[in-house]
């Protein structure tokens, strides 16, 4: 008897990673996709960081002109989104590094570290948002 495995590839579309639709949803999956989502958001934040440095390099009047972006309320929303993304990406990144070192693979450990990441990220975000926005209300 020959199994299908020995046949010539049929050319049929085979499932490619990541095949999200075939698994029952688990909150550890939400963390995994959030890691990518926040990473892409932070990549956009990198553009803002470089724009900020470029405007400072171009002189005082250019720096003042960049206020159209940095002083607007929309940028504050973005800043908060990037801050939240950073807090999550930071702690979940440490979780990934622990996995890469071979630690915490057990299901119960992975779920516990997931909850720990969520708690730490929210705490860090609240503290960072308070420090960044509260004492100097005029300077995001």
């Amino acid at each position: 008897m020959f199994s299908d495995a020995h046949e010539v590839p049929s050319g049929r579309e085979r499932p490619l990673s990541p095949h999200l639709s075939i698994y029952r949803f688990m909150y550890t999956m939400a963390l995994s996709i959030l890691h990518r989502f926040t990473g892409v958001l932070l990549a956009l934040g990198l553009c803002a960081l470089v724009y900020w440095l470029m405007s400072a390099a171009a002189g005082e009047s250019a720096y003042e002109r960049s206020g159209w972006l940095f002083r607007g309320w929309a940028f504050r929303v973005l800043l908060l989104a990037w801050l939240a993304s950073y807090c999550f990406h930071f702690f979940n990144g440490l979780r990934h590094l622990a996995w890469d070192a071979g630690l915490g693979f057990e299901r119960v450990h992975a779920r516990r570290s997931a909850r720990l990441v969520i708690v730490l990220a929210i705490l860090a975000f609240l503290i960072a948002a308070w420090v960044l926005f509260w004492p100097r209300a005029g300077a995001p």
Partner: peptide
């Protein structure tokens, strides 16, 4: 992974510095 490890201290240093920097002040920033 290597860049991730490097970014742990670098980003923390940067964000902590930002909190103590008057960002409206061109002279202070530069």
């Amino acid at each position: 992974r290597a860049s991730a490890v490097a970014l742990v201290p670098l980003t923390l240093w940067f964000l902590l510095s930002l909190t103590r920097l008057p960002l409206d002040d061109f002279a202070a920033v530069t």
